[in-house]
Design a protein around this nucleic acid. Structure first.
Lengths: 220, 220
DNA sequence: GTAGCCAAGAATGGATCCATTTTCAACGCT
DNA sequence: AGCGTTGAAAATGGATCCATTCTTGGCTAC
């Protein structure tokens, strides 16, 4: 028997929209019309409204009274700040997680990183990279902290994608090395080291993103 | 003419519920019934549902499918983690804010702190303390960061209250001194110092809260 | 006497219809 | 020709009613 515990319709709609935004099928600034979505999913507008509110709580859409929902647009400053937030919070999530990560999880991390290093496809990389980091946080007991971190990933996902599209695979080796460092620190149960490597990883990404951003701003 | 820009009904409901939870009129674990609230506010259940989703996004209520809404309960571990999150994120908010704080804001901070030091009333203290810290962050341009910080304050508000009720005013002088340090650092535009004092302020509070928590756990 | 079950009512989720606000394009005025 | 105005269409917000799920009090069986 399938293990589907009969998700509410609003939650099913949320699942579809979430994937649609995260895969880049919808881009920042794009409007989400309740009526169109309702028709598309074959429901009334009500579950769509609820789904939009759920996604808003996850940072995937933005609601404005009487004006509907759209995928949020981040300008350079906001993007930079979200990365600074990640830089401070994710090391905490990792620190809370490391002591509780079993050996099998660490092995899974190694396998994941191997796939990341092999796979050249951009969409795969984005999904696997996210899976990798979230797996390193999976020992963290606080749903609150994990949800906050996911919100950050949600709101920056689109910009990671375009950044990677533009910059190409030339810097991928750095990411791979950093991931290896993080795995190593986890294996040694060296929380401080793990935090440091992770903070560096996020900080470097922010720097490269910002450079990219300024470059593209000057050359449209 | 009054400057009320005709808030949506759902937002009016949210305003009332928000205040009701933050003032401690509703306590963690308490259930929120859509029908009762709808009748009380003289609306249908629909705006209440939307209001509950708004509050859920702010960390003030918790929704479970087919089971309704309740004010979230934090156990000791979760409370500790929220404080650790505050310890990492709020210094960032302060650092982003300090360079943009005008002289009049600093003057307002001094006045606020004076009122905090004078006023013995608990509810006043909680409100003023929150106002004080939020004002120190008011120069921060990122709505995202500010909203995240507010969520932390929301979900810990109740525990701050009971902590202060139990511990009494005996430690208030420490808070006052720490606030003075923070104001001084802001005045000198010394971002690093401000961050350090703030982190210490939050950390000390966490420590005392945890001690209190363990004590009460043993003596019911 | 206690554990488990079952049905009634209580509460939430969803559909449909109406009200209100926003949008935008055509029109008229200067 | 440019700009503000206005009104119709489109989109969101809210009310009411129905469907589904959850809760709970009482009953039966052991």
């Amino acid at each position: 028997m399938t293990n589907e515990t009969q998700l509410a319709v609003s939650e099913q709609v949320a699942v579809h929209l979430r994937s649609r935004i995260l895969t880049g099928e919808m881009t920042p600034g794009q409007r989400l019309l309740q009526e169109d979505l309702a028709e598309e999913f074959g429901t009334s507008r009500l579950p769509v409204r609820e789904a939009l509110r759920m996604l808003a709580a996850e940072g995937l859409v933005e609601l404005e009274s009487n004006k509907g929902a759209r995928v949020p647009v981040l300008d350079q400053d906001e993007l930079s700040i979200v990365y600074k937030m990640r830089e401070r919070l994710e090391p905490l999530a990792l620190a809370e997680s490391v002591p509780h990560l079993g050996e099998h999880v660490i092995e899974k991390l190694r396998l994941l990183q191997a796939r990341i290093a092999e796979d050249a496809d951009l969409s795969h990389f984005l999904a696997l990279d996210r899976e990798f980091h979230m797996l390193t946080y999976s020992g963290c007991a606080s749903e609150n902290l994990l949800a906050t971190v996911e919100r950050f990933w949600n709101s920056t996902q689109h910009y990671r994608r375009t950044f990677m599209e533009v910059s190409g695979p030339g810097r991928r080796w750095v990411v791979n090395s950093e991931h290896d460092f993080i795995i190593d620190a986890i294996e040694r149960r060296d929380t401080d080291d793990a935090e440091r490597y992770l903070a560096g990883h996020i900080r470097r990404t922010r720097m490269e993103l910002m450079k990219q951003f300024e470059f593209r701003r000057l050359s449209p």
